[in-house]
Nucleic acid binder design. Structure first.
Lengths: 234, 234
DNA sequence: TCGACATAAGTAACATGTTACTCCTGATTC
DNA sequence: GAATCAGGAGTAACATGTTACTTATGTCGA
């Protein structure tokens, strides 16, 4: 997304810890609900508690984990309502962003999009949910970058942290990789045609469809998915 | 906004420091561009460097101040482009929020809105820009609360931190308090009628008009306000 | 007058120490 | 057996110590 912008500057221990925790959540080192402590994590990473604490505070702000005073921290799976709220934000921001991306994209950008789209296709064939989610994320990130609003990019990336685990388990359960993949095709082709309106509408259809999928996955006994959807998205 | 939710829990030193810095920026204790240090601020607040540092890190993430390694931190005024980006986000989120607020508001909510609207009117008469901005912020906050999406509320509040100073100087210079006040009237009346579409459209007109005002204020010699607007908002 | 260069002051980033809290565990009582 | 309570283990929040860096300042040679 924003890789080589400040050339040299090595990442701080805090930043490295943030990435380490993100990875740990992705690959199952940190299990949702379990209690962990700054002491132990600092030991395992070979750094002091300060940068670890700073990293956790930042991640806690995005909602992907919760810090409990004098107890520890734990990874939290978003509930149905939180997911609906997040999808509402994504729709509000990513739909216009897709429109703008379509209007601003150059041929070289089309190439980058195609690379990710094809990687997604490969992941579908291979049945690799992790890879699928990775390239899905990159494709959405590319579109946001094209739209040229760094604030929007940052907001969406933070929200994604909170939902990644749900996305993974949803994909694993529903076996609908191909379905989700197909939703991206009209987005990409609209961008290639430079058709802003169509790109926005395709993005909206994709996010609404995927959002409902995620919501059903996360919903508990007493969550009325349709009511939540109506309250926050419609 | 979200006052009495966890009854007792006294605010941590970090939280108190965040508020102290916010206040300091508002009332001119911290001047944009000037360098300040964690050491000194911790002394002045009578706490250690840890909570102060944590507070500054959080505020730096919202963009209202920048931390410079081994130098200090400084309050930053957003440039024209950043302001345009922020207004694009506000439009994308607050317009649908106003629609939802109109559909969900109860009579008691109408009362709360009226209180803030009247306070704004008083501030116009008194020519008190500070009070005007405060109640303007509260009115927007009420509408966001009514829309029921806590993520949206949090995002907008963070963005506001970064723009408050520009808003203040704009109001002081342009003497257009009354104009901005009048833009809120159709929003409030649409909410009272329960007319979601009208509320959204009134909010859009307000944000676009105010956004252009802020942009002109923040624009430097080589900023093309209209081009920025076209790229990010239209 | 001007520029190279040592020196020192000041700082964020990181490490470590301290405190007050939460919760578990197990003994004690009824 | 169940309820109560003391003690201790473990922790986040906060305080303080250390390090490596950046920059201002002044000295000296051309």
């Amino acid at each position: 997304m924003s890789s080589v912008v400040h050339p040299g500057r090595p990442p701080s221990l805090t930043e490295r810890t943030i990435e380490a925790v993100r990875d740990g959540v992705r690959n199952g080192t940190f299990v949702p609900g379990e209690l962990y402590s700054v002491y132990r994590l600092a030991d395992e990473l070979g750094v002091s508690r300060s940068p670890v604490r700073e990293a956790l505070l930042r991640l806690a702000e995005t909602g992907m984990l919760a810090i409990e005073r004098n107890r520890g921290f734990r990874v939290v799976l978003p509930g149905a309502r939180e997911l609906a709220e997040i999808m509402a934000v994504r729709i509000a921001l990513e739909v216009p962003a897709a429109s703008r991306a379509a209007r601003l994209a150059k041929p070289s950008d089309h190439d980058s999009l195609r690379v990710e789209r094809e990687a997604m296709q490969q992941a579908v064939v291979a049945g690799d949910e992790g890879a699928f989610l990775l390239h899905d994320q990159r494709l959405h990130g590319l579109l946001l970058d094209l739209a040229g609003n760094a604030h929007v990019t940052r907001i969406i990336e933070n929200l994604r942290d909170a939902t990644r685990l749900v996305g993974l388990s949803t994909m694993k359960n529903s076996r609908s990789l191909d379905e989700v993949y197909r939703e991206h095709l009209p987005i990409v082709s609209a961008v290639e045609r430079g058709d802003g309106r169509a790109a926005g509408e395709a993005m909206r259809r994709h996010l609404e469809s995927t959002g409902r999928l995620l919501l059903r996955e996360a919903a508990g006994e007493n969550d009325d998915v349709n009511a939540l959807w109506a309250e926050l998205i419609r």
